[in-house]
Design a binder for these strands. Structure first.
Lengths: 188, 188
DNA sequence: GTTGGCATGTAATTGGTTACATGATTGG
DNA sequence: CCAATCATGTAACCAATTACATGCCAAC
């Protein structure tokens, strides 16, 4: 089965699951929400929508919004929903922890769209996330002792420290999210 | 003047300022250090080195490492040093705070290479960073109240919370780094 | 003598960026 | 009537990814 390939693709697919929209509507949403990090320009969004449609994950229909003007409203297909779920429930890799944190957060933000699978997918996500981040933190701390031994300069050591603090924040977040999920109940 | 254009370009340029190296040596370094997030494959590194050389920022010389084998050792040119400093001391933009955190951390890690300008560049960097992150945090917190008002679902709210916690960690890092810099002295 | 590390690269594909281009509609 | 916003797109350029391809050298 085809997938949406890029973070932007999944961002669009997920947003269209919440509300069918036009390219312009999506563009507006990106502009004035923190999800803007996944896009920036119509030059990325329109081609991405075309690709999703070509791969059968979304479907666009023309609407007349005025006497002359037309707009193309997209909504997900059954295949699109299936592809989204595959992505939402896919295992978390070490590589994503290192360089794909943004996409992981995007996935989490959409995890509620996983239907019946959502509760267990949420638990799995948070557990795997916690474990992978913890393991990566161990490695970063090891590098830190190496840098100290090498008497590396202030700047690289401090930059590494920033990375460590950031991952510690991720770890705390995952633990709190898990608690909050178990207490508040999966729904709401 | 030409610049190194991409994060990978600057990563290579900075590393070559610390020690002249071959493409393979750089590849190794990326593989077993957290700087690996800036590269992954020879398919990125070798072309990037070629570009840097073409733009006059680095210079490669052939060395015979064996009877037959050769390796190309790169080192920065004067122009390369100048380009690096321009990049190191360039103002921090809002956009970089939102989506360019990795490159900002890379910059900080190399700030010691800014020569006489390093102490003031470090202070400027940390002050600007702190201010921009703080301002962005304000915006994220505003979005959080909006999401609460809209009674958005658990997952998006929690994902946003993760972003907020991460930026808070960045903020704490910058403050601590500043203190540590002023106390420990710029050198070492 | 063969495995694994040293060493360098290319090719195809893909997708993002910037900038441009066009026109309709709404509100003041 | 004019500005802003709605709405959709294209084109040139650039760089990364994956996978492939080649061969040397040292050590066991």
């Amino acid at each position: 089965m085809k997938d949406a390939a890029t973070s932007l693709g999944y961002a669009l697919l997920g947003l269209l699951h919440q509300k069918e929209q036009t390219g312009y509507g999506l563009q507006r949403f990106f502009e004035d929400s923190p999800m803007g990090i996944y896009s920036s320009s119509p030059g990325a969004i329109y081609p991405a929508l075309k690709r999703l449609e070509k791969n059968g994950l979304i479907e666009g229909t023309l609407h007349e919004t005025g006497p002359v003007q037309r707009s193309r409203v997209y909504r997900p297909t059954a295949q699109g929903t299936a592809a989204l779920r595959v992505w939402l429930t896919r295992p978390i890799s070490r590589r994503e922890i290192e360089i794909g944190m943004d996409e992981l957060m995007l996935r989490f933000a959409f995890l509620g769209l996983a239907g019946e699978a959502a509760p267990s997918a949420t638990r799995d996500f948070l557990e795997d996330f916690e474990q992978e981040v913890d393991s990566y933190l161990g490695e970063l701390e090891h590098v830190r002792t190496e840098l100290a031994a090498k008497e590396a300069g202030f700047h690289p050591r401090q930059a590494l420290e920033g990375g460590i603090q950031t991952y510690r924040a991720h770890l705390r977040w995952a633990r709190e999210a898990r608690t909050s999920f178990e207490q508040g109940g999966p729904d709401e």
